[in-house]
Amino acid sequence: MIEIKNIKKSFGKNEVLKNINTEIKKGDKVVIIGPSGSGKSTLLRCMNLLETPTSGSIVFQGTDITDKKSDINKIRQRMGMVFQHFNLFPHLTVLENIMLAPVKLNLQTKEEAEENALRLLERIGLSDKKYEYPAMLSGGQKQRIAIVRSLSMKPEIMLFDEPTSALDPEMIGEVLKLMKDLAEDGMTMVVVTHEMGFAKSVANRILFMDEGKILEENNPQDFFLNPVHERSKEFLSKILYNI
């Protein structure tokens, strides 16, 4: 579904991604983990060109999205993205947040979009919030609405950029539950996260990154029990601490 070939990305002199190669297949649940500054968010943001790679190519469903001739807006309509800070539109109600893109892009009529939005809200149990503004919602509610806002575009793949990092501990569960449901429905997902429990139970592949490189690509069982790379071992020993 997405082929990532020789991606490099620099911000000024700082090389954040050093020759990344990997492939996301349809139905994959890829979890990218690694220390802060390892380039994992940048890699994710390259996949829908929120960051433009300095060199290399990203091929989505046969189209090279780094090619200037390809219509990136059209491609982004097929890729959902969820952000750490939700980025709901504060001036619009919950319902309007979900309906905005499908309606303004003329993909659905207002009636269709509303029906679709109400069904999505029903699914996450937030139908009663449809006329409220984001300022009135909890972090967990905001993030779940951000997820269904992306789903309203019926994407083929969902990218999650640390979706639970800005949440109160009590709210993390509800967001991860929704993501797990999505995974079980067969959605192709790429998730940057620090939630190791989620990685273990949902991912079919783990990418471990450090200093702009993918150091280990493994299935979750082997990665958590018998990591191959020295840096993976060190990272896991530090985060899976027992006091």
């Binding site: 929120l50 807006n73 059209k74 959902g80 993205m81």
Partner: peptide, 8 residues
Amino acid sequence: EAGMSLGL
């Protein structure tokens, strides 16, 4: 970014 990621 949220707007662009939705394809606007």
